[in-house]
Design a binder for these strands. Structure first.
Lengths: 341, 341
DNA sequence: TCCCTGCAGGTCAACGTTTTCCACGGCCTC
DNA sequence: GAGGCCGTGGAAAACGTTGACCTGCAGGGA
């Protein structure tokens, strides 16, 4: 900046004023400054500007990874809204490690992030919740905000913005739908990490749907496993190999469901004539599977956008800092009436 | 920081030294400082630190969007390597707008980004190339670096790091493979924006494969269209409706190919018995389509990682600032011998 | 006893902006 | 013709941190 000022024959103050345009500068002076700026390809130092209070603020979003279809869509919503609000977007991934997630929040606090967005479910251990509470308060004290996307609130008095799906309700709807089709032996695949908030909510919905119809959940039909294709494939295969009877599968995610479909096809079971399959998330892949996967649709991008909007304008939305977005069933071709026994 | 210093009864310098750990501080003093830090939940201001030369540097990556499977995987590679190198990652999307892309580069220059990574193909108009050259030089002067991921170099003397795929070679291999299977009427779908670098390279490979076998490219089999599912569907449908004969389709991306498959299925053409289909990119979806899509595999994550590695250590890789990563065919179930005419 | 050495900590400038306050000159008004 | 005001520009402080330099004190050797 000093260089520009020297070439233009003015002071740094004047250069700053020309660039900011918030102070009257004579046209001829402005011209000289602009020419010097162009000549040197000068751009202001955002860090110095931020230090003194100006400059664009940043929003951090912390996510498991960028490639999961679910995460990518939420991220897309977050990024779009962040840019629309004139903020910059810092992104970090933690690959599912809760401690790394905490570290990243600290890091973003140093970066003076205006909001720190946690995307996707997290673990709910006592120590994790306690540290989260601390961090949420620390952020709050500096005028920043902890934002939870697709994760339930940490606690009652913890200052944070929460936007989540009705995971339990979606699971209830999906399971109820299968029951209404006559299915009575509905396997659930992917309950491997019960302390994971998403897993728990979906499993709870599955259980409640059974209870609501006076049905029992058969323990041998509750299968653990991760949120991946392999898990869906292996557990379905095991179910078949062990000869455990079932007429429907509720896969905890669409990706798991794709593995389920593969295992069923290999075993010669027709979908939906012999076995109905329903997924969760409505990722783009779901429509392209054969048969098209029935699933629970989640408004991913809207989730991201809403979260940022509420967090940045929390003065106007003070009463709306915990929002639960609705889900709905998408019925495609992988579900049908239970076969006659 | 002053608050911490006051509570601990020391000067700000001492607090800085305790936190940095690069200067001997008496154990008792350190204890008092640490207690004050914990009490206030103090974290250093990264912007002030950056101003004075310390603190983590940032890498910017500028991408079309986060949800395209291709972009997401490159982004994943970029983010992972960036974090591994101890840098932070700023992400911006431009939704395919070349001018917005240029604006974002300026913005990232202000942010003092250590490298500015452009992901995916870009347009190659004279004005765009000229401005890119300017920006590359401006970045270079400040010790930063323009990095092109999956895009050919801007020009000979433009300081930049380029990591691209052999798009032309992959298209050549894919087309040659179809020709070797006996196909002579091979449609190419998705050449809508010929100035797009990726489009051009893939079309060139298609053309060269024909030439190499002494075949002519039939103009009616060269179909424009975007990189989306709809485009693949519509152009395939049009081909069928107009009665133009073809035995194979080279879709410019896998997403386009998924639309092609849908149109063929609706028209009752069997794949691969009646028509062979080959895609490009090897996105995760490709393996899940029915039939499994033959395609050209691109090492997306490796691309992102390599780009960051070369850019940040360009002192050690001075001669390696233009790398072309190889591609290879993945043969699944959507390609087969040409039908007997 | 005195001086030198080494450790612990403090002081101050610097980083690159923005912003507040002040100075200078010309023009209008009385 | 003089005083005040407006339009324009500069000087200096401030933001929060780091690093170079300096000071004071204790211990040890001569």
């Amino acid at each position: 900046m000093k260089d520009v000022a020297a070439i233009a024959g003015v002071s740094a103050t004047t250069v700053s004023r020309v660039l900011a345009g918030n102070y009257p500068v004579a046209a001829t002076t402005r011209g000289r400054v602009m020419r010097a700026v162009q000549q040197l390809d000068y751009v202001a130092n955002a860090q110095a500007r931020a230090l003194v209070g100006g400059g664009p603020r940043t929003v951090a979003f912390i996510i498991r990874d960028l490639v999961g279809p679910l995460f990518a869509y939420i991220g897309q919503g977050v990024e779009q809204q962040t840019t629309a609000e004139g903020r910059l977007c810092l992104v970090c991934t933690h690959n599912g490690d809760p401690d790394r997630e905490l570290e990243l929040i600290e890091l973003m606090r140093e970066q003076q992030a205006e909001a720190v967005v946690l995307v996707g479910g997290g673990v709910r251990t006592a120590s994790n919740l306690e540290r989260m509470t601390q961090l949420a308060n620390a952020l709050d004290r500096t005028g920043s905000r902890l934002v939870l996307c697709g994760r339930p609130p940490i606690g009652a008095d913890v200052p944070s913005t929460v936007v989540e799906y009705d995971n339990e309700g979606g699971a209830f709807a999906a399971t109820s739908y299968l029951i209404s089709l006559g299915h009575r032996q509905i396997a659930i695949i992917g309950t491997g990490v019960p302390e994971h908030t998403t897993t728990k909510a979906r499993f709870d919905g599955y259980t409640r749907a059974h209870k609501a119809r006076g049905l029992e959940v058969a323990p041998e039909l509750v299968l653990p496993g991760d949120y991946d294709r392999e898990s869906g494939y292996q557990h379905t295969k095991a179910l078949i190999d062990q000869g455990i009877p079932f007429t429907a599968v509720f896969a905890i995610t669409d990706v798991v469901a794709s593995g389920v479909l593969l295992a069923l096809r290999e075993a010669g079971r027709r979908v939906p004539e012999d076995v109905s399959v329903i997924g969760y998330d409505d990722i783009p892949l779901a429509a392209d599977l054969t048969p098209g996967l029935s699933t629970v649709h989640l408004p991913h991008e809207e989730l991201g956008r809403t979260a940022i909007r509420l967090a940045l304008h929390r003065d106007q939305h003070a009463l709306d800092q915990h929002v639960v977005l609705g889900t709905h069933l998408v019925i495609r071709d992988s579900t049908g009436p239970a076969p006659h026994q």
